[in-house]
Write a protein that binds this DNA or RNA. Structure first.
Length: 651
RNA sequence: GCGCCCGUAGCUCAGCUGGAUAGAGCGAUUGGCUUCGAACCAAUAGGCCGGGGGUUCGAGUCCCUCCGGGCGCGCCA
């Protein structure tokens, strides 16, 4: 509701300023510093002051006089040095909220592609991957809430070095055949993704001590690329199995995908060759004949770097002198496909169906009709950590060099900082720290060293902790039910933890903080929603029906109740859910939704503590309190669903 | 060396395109459960917003510079 009236007023003011002063783009509204100043503040007089060479306060006075009465506004006041504070007509506003005016959102045309997760399918997922997936999934939920059509892609690099290393580990270090590995997969005592986690670390260590064995990797890569030999078969077994684990891990957090484009198909359907022809034809890349990059196809540094100094040393190699393409090259081809610019498509087959949602995976062979259309996005968000910003810049430069400026502008690197480990948590994990590391605020995780916290371990630990709390509070409830509740709490805690930090803040992961269920946490917000539901449930237990609020509460009644500043402020914050999501979308910051959810919960807990609902004797007030309770419940649930957090039946 | 990010309360972090008296959680101290279940609420203490210049009517926010920390900069991905 709030975002509607905000928009109305903002447009009205912009129109007036344009007509009266011939000035554009000055109508952004603000939240007043204090609630007592009103609901919205218009700082337009400050912006006009410079051009009109008049005091802001005088201009503000003039504008207020000229604007006259605004719909839904009870007063405009000049305040401070020249603010115009807006006071809304409370009864009307509440009536709009109650009748649900403007709550249905318009569909936004076009398709947005969000690519996230993208974990190398060679070992178990860790907390860094969780941040990626949770950020990406939440952003998707935000966009969908905002009315956007979103396609979720999870890119699978099943032919890369990381997979090759684990395959080499099985083949050379453990001398296991494909059949042996399949046997391992069937062994219920073996957690295959964990097994690979350790094996990958062992292989990395081995290569450090025996660099001559790096040929294993090259040979394996070669076999995988040409789909021949035992190791290619092994790679398929390993990567398919690990993808299964990754999807299962993410499913625990309510994260799903629409399509899994794989590098194997990018290779075999010759996506790169097509892109290569385009890049050559448009002279986006050139064949280097001298210097250290002699014999390579390179993209000039001027294409993706700010300073245009001619320095061929900084050029980015796209095709190596041995004629193989780099990762960035393949990524350019993939990005072109996402926009429907490649002139080629994958084939698709269903991978798996979970909760009625089918995930498709790319294949290189024609399939019976029935798969949806993928790709052809109007804008693309790549959720990738900030360490890869340089490569993302190169990809975007590739599009630009091909003349796809619009698509380049709509290729958004949705970057975020890494998840590291707090020194305290390293100690808990038994990781040895150097004296230097102990002084650092955080220590970087490393898959190669097998150093990190596995996603499923963390989730299990959270469930265990939550279960202790649930058991203590509800010993009479069935065990299976308690487990469900504990799982929902654990997921709420984890998702909120990953979302409460803004994207460019490094998270120093700390068990003690992540396992906290109090204060600014997911469980706090969940608990609040449970409280609201409990009131309504108690009402039903007494054999009472929820009143027909729209019939019982007319504008006059709402006006009477909302004369209370407390109630008015509560209604206001609860009505800002869509506003919060809009703001979070435009700033690209899921943390803003998390922050709002917490503030909403705080407001309700205040209300809960101060105003007993069921025992209220005044009829009108009781109905009003019930309405507030039900409205808060709905807004809390809606906001939590945007965050991907469930509300348990009890806590 | 070059590029990007960060520096705000004891700790962890917010602070929306520059705006009114800089906020929250944790921790500390104190108080509140016969209740719509305290995973909660209330109160108190705690700040030269890293330092210094500048732009502006106005700077935590923009520019410059210095200090401190992180991450990138491969014919790896």
């Amino acid at each position: 509701m709030f975002h509607l009236i905000e928009k109305q007023i903002s447009e009205r003011v912009a129109e007036h300023v344009r007509a009266r002063y011939n000035v554009e783009n000055v109508a952004a509204l603000e939240q007043p510093k204090q609630a007592s100043f009103g609901e919205l503040a218009i700082p337009v007089a400050f912006h006009l002051a410079r051009q009109l060479k008049q005091a802001p306060r005088a201009i503000a006075g003039q504008i207020v006089a000229d604007l006259g009465a605004l719909e839904g506004v009870s007063a405009l006041e000049v305040a401070g040095n020249g603010y115009i504070n807006v006071r809304l007509d409370r009864g009307r506003y509440a009536d709009g909220v109650l009748k649900g005016t403007g709550e249905s959102r318009e569909k936004v045309p076009g398709k947005i592609i969000v690519e996230h997760t993208n974990i190398n399918p060679n070992k178990a997922a860790h907390i860094g991957h969780l941040r990626n997936a949770i950020l990406g999934d939440t952003f998707v939920r935000m966009l969908r809430r905002g009315g956007c059509n979103v396609e979720v892609q999870n890119y699978i690099d099943n032919t890369g070095v990381q997979v090759a290393d684990v395959v080499a580990g099985f083949h050379f270090l453990e001398t296991k055949s494909a059949a042996d590995v399949e046997q391992l997969l069937r062994d219920p005592a073996v957690r295959f993704d964990y097994y690979c986690w350790d094996l990958y670390a062992r292989v990395s260590t081995h290569f450090n001590g025996h660099p001559e064995d790096l040929a294993w990797r090259l040979n394996t890569l070669h076999e995988i690329e040409h789909r021949t030999g035992d190791r290619a078969h092994l790679a398929a077994i390993v990567s398919n199995a690990i993808v299964g684990y990754h999807l299962a891990t993410m499913q625990r957090l309510g994260i799903q995908y629409d399509v899994l484009p794989r590098e194997s198909e990018i290779l075999h359907l010759k996506f790169w060759e097509t892109a290569f022809e385009q890049l050559k034809a448009r002279q986006a890349i050139y064949f280097e004949t001298e210097g250290k990059n002699k014999g390579c196809w390179v993209m000039p540094a001027s294409a993706f770097k700010e300073q245009t100094r001619e320095d061929t040393e900084d050029s980015k190699v796209i095709v190596r002198s041995n004629n193989t393409v780099t990762y960035v090259g393949k990524d350019i081809a993939y990005q072109l496909w996402k926009f429907g610019l490649l002139g080629k498509d994958f084939f698709y087959r269903p991978w798996k169906q979970v909760d009625g949602h089918t995930v498709y995976v790319s294949t290189s062979d024609p399939q019976p009709a029935g798969a949806p259309s993928f790709g052809h996005g109007d804008s693309v968000y790549n959720v990738i950590d900030s360490r890869q910003s340089y490569l993302q810049d190169v990809v975007v430069a590739g599009l630009r060099a091909l003349g796809y400026d619009q698509q380049a502008n709509r290729s958004i690197h949705f970057s975020y900082e890494m998840v590291a480990l707090s020194p305290r948590t390293c100690v808990e994990l038994g990781i040895e720290l150097s004296e230097e590391d102990k002084k650092r605020p955080y220590v970087e995780v490393s898959g190669r060293k097998g150093l990190g916290v596995k996603a499923d371990d963390l989730i299990d630990k959270l469930i265990e902790k939550a279960l202790e709390e649930v058991d203590a509070r509800h010993p009479e409830a069935p065990a299976a039910e308690r487990r469900t509740v504990a799982t929902q709490i654990a997921v709420g805690a984890l998702r909120y933890f990953m979302l409460k930090y803004t994207r460019n803040s490094v998270i120093a992961f700390d068990f003690q903080e992540a396992l906290s269920f109090e204060g600014e946490t997911g469980p706090y917000v969940q608990y609040t929603a449970v409280r609201a539901r409990n009131i309504l449930r108690k009402l039903a237990e007494r054999g009472e029906q929820l009143p027909d609020f729209a019939r019982e509460l007319d504008a006059a009644a709402l006006q009477r109740q909302l004369a209370s500043e407390d109630f008015w402020q509560l209604l206001l914050i609860a009505s800002k859910a869509d506003s919060a999501v809009d703001r979070a979308i435009s700033s690209g910051e899921p943390a803003h939704v998390a922050k709002y959810a917490f503030q909403l919960a705080q407001a309700f807990n205040n209300f809960y503590h101060g105003y007993p609902v069921l025992t209220e004797e005044n009829r009108e007030k009781r109905i009003f309190l019930l309405w507030m309770t039900d409205y808060f419940r709905a807004q809390l649930e809606q906001t939590l669903s945007v965050l991907g957090i469930f509300v348990p039946d009890y806590m």
